[in-house]
């Protein structure tokens, strides 16, 4: 699996609005809705930050849907910074202010 872009948020509606297919998702949420959201968007893998552990039903669902979960003790900012330093870029740089649609 090759990943070039990432998005980070704890608000699932923001993830739905902005994250793009094939991106990594960095989040502090650990419930099954994170997996559902990732599935809907074809997210390549989820990184759970701040040392949180996914709940057993989250792990189960991720396994069923074939979505990898990684965990890290780094905070969201640090995780994003380290990934950026390694060449990963945001799935979008900034929002255009008026619409959230990707067309």
């Amino acid at each position: 699996m090759e990943v070039k872009t990432a998005f980070g948020a704890d608000l699932m509606s923001d993830v739905l609005a902005f994250a793009q297919s094939g991106s990594l998702l960095l989040t502090g949420l650990t419930n099954p809705q994170v997996i559902r959201t990732a599935d809907v968007l074809d997210i390549s893998a989820i990184i759970i930050v701040r040392g949180k552990r996914p709940s057993p039903d989250t792990v189960q669902l991720a396994g069923d849907l074939g979505i990898p979960i990684l965990v890290t003790r780094f905070i969201l900012f640090e995780t994003a910074g380290r990934l950026y330093q390694s060449g990963i870029r945001g799935c979008l740089v900034k929002v255009d202010g008026s619409v959230h649609s990707h067309g």
Binding site: D10, L11, M12, S13, D14, V15, L16, A17, T27, L29, N31, Q33, V34, T37, H100
Partner: peptide, 13 residues
């Protein structure tokens, strides 16, 4: 909100 929803973006999305 615990699920990561309820930020007032649903209908707009």
């Amino acid at each position: 909100r615990e699920m990561g929803f309820g930020a007032g973006m649903g209908l707009a999305n």
